[in-house]
Amino acid sequence: MSIVLLAARVDLEHVLIVGAVLFAIGLYVALSKRNAVAVLMGIELMLNAVNLTFIAFARFVESPRPLDGHVFVIFVITVAAAEAAVALALAVAVYRHRETIDVGKISLLRW
């Protein structure tokens, strides 16, 4: 109960700004890093920022269906876990064949 009362005084905008900053950091990591695993870290950060925004809206904005945001976040986490497993398996497989996971050097499909 006390947690709920405390939460009443955190502003929606502030949570949204944290989400926006985390998303931008994740975008920079995903775009700039050369290690494929680090690129995946950026993607995870972006997914987290989106989840945070979902929860902020579910919590602060009045809605006839207050549960939907939470359920959506659960599905996002599920898909993110599946995506992480497949992407890391891909990184390991690429490393085995090419001896590198530098995304700048994996350019077989480049024309």
Binding site: R34, A84, V92
Partner: peptide, 23 residues
């Protein structure tokens, strides 16, 4: 999972060039 992938792919050789030219 990420740490296991880093271990399996031996990232040490990339340290000098962490960030691509497009940064």
């Amino acid at each position: 999972l990420l740490l296991f992938a880093l271990m399996l792919t031996r990232v040490g050789d990339l340290e000098e060039t962490m960030v691509g030219a497009q940064w």
